[in-house]
Simulated assay, not measured.
Amino acid sequence: MKEALLNIMPKDKVEALLSISQVKNLKAGEYFIRAGDVPKNFAFVLSGFFRYVYINNKGDEFTKGLIMELDFISSYSAMISRSPSHFFIEAMEDAVILNIPYQKWLVLQETDVFWIKFLLKSIEKGFSKKEKRERDLLLLNAETRYLDFLKEFPGIDKRISQAIIASYLGIKPESLSRIRKNLST
């Protein structure tokens, strides 16, 4: 656990973060946050991966994002505004996270400017990913999005269902099957 954090911050900062956090295990299919919950925590993914998913009143699922190991999961805008989350955060396989209470995080930020800079870098990284994803959905065809997906998330197509991949790409599973068939010929 410490080793993973040492990849992104100095040892003394790891100790400070661990002092306010708790390791938590989640099973595949378990939710870190449910739509409608007011989140009070965010987490660092130590192992496993997660998806952000909207579910409409018909039960249709729309995968907003995939969050891999060594990254943060959060319904950030809901957490900072103390309002209900609009999406679920689902463990896609058994996972281990470092659960971080937001109020304790705020206190940590007050004690050391490092944490403000760290937060800014994390937000910039998330914003850049979101901007790229929006651009891809608006400008690229489905086949190109699928090929880019395979490059961005190597091997993930063997870890999740084709339906979830299609949901992430913004297409129907039948369209993904057609794309995969065309690429294999």
Rank of each mutant, 00 (worst) to 15 (best):
P10Y: 15
E143N: 11
S19K: 10
S128G: 06
L137I: 08
L137P: 00
F62A: 12
R51G: 04
S128A: 07
I33H: 01
K104S: 13
Y31G: 11
N56L: 08
V45A: 14
G126D: 09
M9C: 11
P39N: 00
G29C: 00
H86T: 12
S75G: 11
G126R: 11
Q109R: 01
W105Q: 02
V23Q: 02
E61V: 00
L120C: 13
I67N: 07
F149R: 11
N57Q: 12
K121E: 07
G65R: 10
F118W: 13
M92Q: 07
V53P: 00
G36E: 07
P10N: 15
D71C: 10
S77C: 06
T111G: 09
L147A: 04
E90W: 01
P101G: 04
E134P: 02
Y146L: 00
E131D: 02
I55P: 03
R135F: 04
N56C: 02
L26H: 13
D12E: 13
L120D: 07
G59A: 07
V23W: 08
K27T: 10
N57K: 15
S77T: 11
A43P: 09
N141P: 02
S81N: 12
S81C: 14
M9L: 15
F49T: 03
M68C: 08
W115H: 06
F88E: 06
L106Q: 14
F50Q: 03
V107H: 12
S77L: 14
F88M: 14
F127R: 02
K40T: 09
I20T: 11
T144A: 04
E90Q: 11
P84F: 07
G59Y: 06
Q22H: 13
Q22L: 14
K11A: 15
L66E: 05
E30W: 00
I67T: 14
P39M: 10
K13I: 03
R34K: 01
Y31L: 13
L119F: 01
M92L: 13
N141A: 02
K125I: 05
F87A: 06
F87V: 08
I80W: 08
K24V: 14
A91F: 00
S74L: 06
T63R: 09
L106N: 09
